[in-house]
Every structure is written in C-alpha cells, then in structure tokens.
C-alpha cells in the first residue's frame, strides 16, 4: 500500500515539475520540486539547520512533559472527586474546542517574546486532551475490578498500581498522543508567527528573504518531520499496548 501512496506523491511532484518547467506555474512562486527536494537533502546535512530542528524538538518535549504531568494529575483529581468532575469536565471540554492559540499575545506579555512563552502556550493547549482522556479512562474502569482489589485488601497504592493504572493506560495513552501532536503544531506555528526558535523561524525568514527554494524545502521538511513524529508515536502506542 505504501508503494502506491508514494507513487501518488511522486506523480504529483512530477506534474508540478512539468508545470513549472513549461512555466504553466510561475517559477518565481514555485521552485522546481527536484530543486526543493535536493535542497532538503543539503539542509538535512547542514549542522546549523539540524540545530533548528533540535530547538523545535526541545520545545516540543518540554511542552509535552508539562502537559502530561499536570494533565494526568488534574484528570485524576476530576475522577477522584465526583463533584469536581461534574463541575469542571464540561469546562475543560469547552476550552478544548476553543481557539486557545489566539491567546498567544497574553503569553508574550506575561512571559516575554521567547521560548518559554511558546512552551507554556503549547502546554496549556495540550493539557486539555490529557485531562479529558485521563478522566474518561479512569471513569471507564469497572467498579467490579476495583471491588476485587478491595476484597483482596490491597493497599490504596497497590490498588492504583495494579488495577486502576493498567486498566486506564490505553485511553490515557491516546490522550497523550493527541497532546504531543498538538504541542508540535503549536510550537511550529508560534515559531513561524513570532520568528523565534527553530524550524518555524526558518520558514518565516526564508519567505521574508524571498528564498522560494528554501521556503518550499523547509515546509516540506516540516511535513516530513511531523509525519515521522506521528508515525513514531503510533508505533510506540502499539508497542506499549501489546
């Protein structure tokens, strides 16, 4: 299947290549795909560019770690106290579908125009799916299983460690996967908008300097890196659940 998928992409690129060479598409706006792909290759062996990738990934992991820890703790609390859950789960769900990213000027004002603001914004956004999925995962654990633990006189900790956690883990992992995707999206988007940090900054600079080949090459690399990232998380999820 992947061979056909790659063939679809290659055919598309070849059509664009022909269109650009015959000037059906203005070559000033779109570089030849062959050139853009070659540029991707040179960028990937360029230490400076790899440094930018490292910055973006660093911000992504920082934001994700924050969102994961806070989100799982809050999700646990919302599950533990029924009235807290009833009162605030709908609020978290509403925030989840609201345009949090648009609040970024507030983060700039409070934290400054730097990586900290980007990481904080990404974490605030990604904490929401983590909370929701953790709460739902724990709520879905059946009463019977918890009663078995109680009748075996397990301590609260063993009950949590050996019954609750294994039963809830798969759904929590789904939440974490969504959180990680969101963090990456917010980090790259904010780097582009603010022109600071890693890959997003590179896209912004390439466009301001009218370096079309670099622009398309870096956008292409972001697509590939995001896809690889999501693929890796999906693999990890499958490994953990086996």
């Amino acid at each position: 299947m992947w061979i056909v998928r790659i063939a679809v992409i290659v055919v598309f690129l070849v059509l664009v290549e022909i269109a650009v060479r015959t000037e059906l598409i203005n070559p000033f706006f779109v570089p030849r795909p062959s050139e853009a792909v070659a540029r991707m290759g040179t960028r990937l062996t360029d230490g400076e560019f790899l440094g930018l990738v490292a910055v973006t990934l660093g911000e992504t992991f920082a934001g994700f770690a924050l969102a994961a820890v806070v989100g799982m703790v809050v999700g646990f609390l919302l599950w533990r106290s029924r009235s807290l859950g009833d009162a605030f789960e709908p609020l978290v769900a509403a925030l989840f579908s609201s345009p949090i990213v648009l609040l970024y000027p507030i983060f700039l004002v409070i934290l400054g125009r730097n990586s900290t603001a980007i990481v904080a914004l990404a974490a605030v956004f990604a904490v929401l799916p983590t909370i929701l999925f953790t709460k739902q995962a724990l709520s879905a654990v059946s009463r019977t299983m918890l009663n078995v633990g109680r009748s075996l006189n397990l301590s609260a900790w063993s009950n949590f460690r050996h019954i609750l956690l294994p039963a809830a883990a798969p759904t929590i992992f789904t939440g974490l996967r969504i959180a990680l995707t969101y963090v990456l999206i917010v980090v790259v988007a904010m780097e582009y908008i603010l022109q600071i940090g890693g890959l997003g900054r590179f896209v912004s600079e390439s466009s301001l300097l009218f370096r079309a080949t670099d622009l398309y090459a870096s956008v292409g690399l972001i697509v590939i890196i995001s896809a690889a990232f999501i693929w890796a998380i999906n693999r990890l999820e499958k490994l953990v659940q086996r």
Partner: peptide, 17 residues
C-alpha cells in the same frame, strides 16, 4: 499525516500567490 501538520507554515506560500 498531512492534516496533522501545522498548516500555518503554508501561509508564506499563500502570500506569494
């Protein structure tokens, strides 16, 4: 996979066009 890419990075290309 393409849907999970931050689409705002396509914005400079749209500005060109």
């Amino acid at each position: 996979y393409v849907g999970a890419v931050p689409k705002i990075v396509l914005f400079p290309i749209l500005i060109l066009f």
